[in-house]
Amino acid sequence: AKGLVFEMVEKHPLQNRWALWFFKNDKSKTWQANLHLITKFDTVEDFWGLYHHIQPASKLTPGCDYSLFKDGIEPMWEDDQNKRGGRWLVTLAKQQRHTDLDHFWLETLLCLIGESFERFGGDICGAVLNVRAKGDKIAVWTCEADNRDGVTHIGRVYKERLGLTQKVTIGYQAHTDTASKSHNLTKNKFVV
């Protein structure tokens, strides 16, 4: 044998370090006590290592959430980086848990870590997955609801990446509106 050639396997750095959070609904605890940081990563390879290690979205118990946020931003409205912002919200019908949820969530994660929103990537705070009996939700959170150019660019790119047809619309809601009204009354600030 001529001996083995060892290759240095370099990892591919991401633009941002990301934190994955898990929320498990336990009514005996406060909302914040139910929120757990799983881990942080800042390379493509570490992302996949994590992704393959955790439950797929469709296998989570209803009431659970995953959140992926930039390091330093907590997955809640109250965070300074989120409080003036809002979210592009994708609501799924019950049956889509088995057909679309895992695909949509992975696509959302890839948009974030790959910086698909280009020059408006700085507007991105994170993304949230809610697994719920009445229908699952995925949302991309941005930092400034009044930044029309950034918000609409992100919405268009995101909708295209999910492969949604023109017949489907998704709406952007400011967190201040979501917090002050019951959810089904929250008006969309933008629609794509």
């Binding site: 591919h12 750095p13 991401l14 633009q15 493509v44 390879e45 996949w48 992704y51 696509e107 890839l110 870590i113 790959g114 910086e115 698909s116 280009e118 020059r119 990537g121 990446r161």
Partner: peptide, 18 residues
């Protein structure tokens, strides 16, 4: 500065690497 951008195809190829 420059932003490190990875397209979907590249990220998926990394998934399949050993």
């Amino acid at each position: 500065g420059t932003r490190i951008i990875y397209d979907r195809k590249f990220l998926m190829e990394c998934r399949n690497s050993p």
